[in-house]
Simulated scan of single mutants.
Amino acid sequence: MRSLRIMLLAGALAGLTTAGALAAGSGGGTGMAMPSASAPAYDPAEEYAKAVASIQAKDYKAAARAAQRVTDAAPTNVDGWRLLGVAQAGAQNWKGARKAYERAVKLSPDDLPSRAGLGMALANLKDPKAQEQLAWLRAKAADCGAGCDAAALQSLTAEVEKALAGGTAAGQPSAALEGGSLLFAAAGDRAYVQAVGLINEKRYDEALASLDAARAAFGPHPDILTYQGYAWRKKGRFDRAEGYYRQALAIAPAHRGATEYYGELKVERGDVAGARLMLAALDRICAYGCAEAEELRRWIDAGGEPGL
């Protein structure tokens, strides 16, 4: 893989919201801006931002409409379902919240906010299955080792216990659940820049944590999804990597970075025919040629990463 480099624009003031371009062929594909400023013409990241803004304004019905569009466009993205759950809970639509959180838990069984959100929704519906989610959270807290966020677990567990004790009062949505969604763009951009730097250093576990933070701010942005695929691929988890590449391409079919890296993954799996299909797609996208197409061509010709 070519070196992934970030050049920060001089004069950036509040954080890194004006941070600049990824090197050619990076996850961003066209890459001249941070995820807060760049996205396909129509994409779920834009609707995600609308939903977050509506939650901040306490307009939960508008938030639910925008979050629903996120899940319609990116049905396998856990962030959209979690955000929809927050919006529906804020609107006191507990059946809608339960459905959204159930989908989130199905996609990511270890996602703490989704487990807590589901527990709260079930508690407010007087469903005894809420106890199962509380028991799950308590078990996680009891086994909270290195890398575990004990404070978050404690807060989320307390929210479910409160809901079971008497339900959530109207107009009083969960601060613990909302908090994870109300990230500013600057914080998301910082997490994104940090993730790319960590990938350069081959610190993939830390990079994935930063990418999760960026995705919580921006939702299913194809640049972020592409880098998540790359990090999982470098960890040897080709199945996880493919899932992220497919998500990115479902949102932005002409995304050069995702197309190139998915082709490289196919080469690594021995699927040369599949890699050639990705190369053909890049040749269509890049009418006058591009670095991504040339790099994938080298991978195919070399039968793996060139130079190894």
Results as ranks from 00 to 15, higher is better:
Ala51Asn: 14
Val52Pro: 06
Val52Trp: 05
Ala53Asp: 12
Ala53Val: 06
Ile55Phe: 05
Gln56Pro: 01
Ala57Asp: 14
Ala57Thr: 12
Ala57Asn: 13
Lys58Ser: 13
Lys58Cys: 06
Asp59Gln: 15
Asp59Cys: 09
Asp59Ser: 14
Asp59Pro: 06
Tyr60Asn: 02
Tyr60Arg: 02
Lys61Gly: 12
Lys61Arg: 15
Lys61His: 12
Ala62Glu: 12
Ala62His: 11
Ala62Lys: 15
Ala62Arg: 14
Ala62Leu: 11
Ala64Ile: 13
Ala64Tyr: 05
Arg65Trp: 01
Arg65Cys: 01
Arg65Lys: 14
Ala66Pro: 08
Ala66Gln: 07
Gln68Ser: 14
Arg69Cys: 01
Val70Gly: 06
Val70Asp: 06
Val70Arg: 09
Thr71Met: 08
Thr71Ala: 08
Asp72Asn: 14
Ala73Cys: 07
Ala73Gly: 12
Ala73Pro: 03
Ala73Val: 03
Ala73Ile: 07
Ala74Thr: 04
Ala74Arg: 04
Pro75Met: 07
Thr76Glu: 08
Asn77Gln: 02
Val78Met: 09
Val78Ser: 03
Val78Asn: 04
Asp79Ser: 12
Asp79Glu: 14
Asp79Tyr: 09
Asp79Lys: 10
Arg82Cys: 05
Leu83Val: 12
Leu83Asn: 08
Leu84Glu: 01
Gly85Met: 05
Val86Met: 06
Val86Tyr: 02
Ala87Met: 12
Ala87Pro: 11
Ala87Cys: 14
Gln88Trp: 02
Gln88Leu: 05
Gly90Glu: 04
Gly90Phe: 03
Gly90Met: 03
Ala91Val: 09
Ala91Glu: 12
Gln92Gly: 03
Gln92Asn: 11
Gln92Asp: 11
Asn93Ile: 06
Asn93Lys: 12
Asn93Arg: 13
Trp94Arg: 10
Trp94Glu: 07
Trp94Asn: 07
Trp94Thr: 10
Trp94Ser: 11
Lys95Pro: 00
Lys95Asp: 09
Gly96Asp: 03
Gly96Phe: 00
Gly96Ser: 06
Ala97Ile: 10
Tyr101Asp: 05
Tyr101Ile: 10
Glu102Thr: 15
Arg103Met: 03
Arg103Lys: 10
Arg103Val: 02
Arg103Gly: 00
Arg103Glu: 04
Ala104Val: 08
Ala104Phe: 02
Val105Gly: 00
Val105Arg: 04
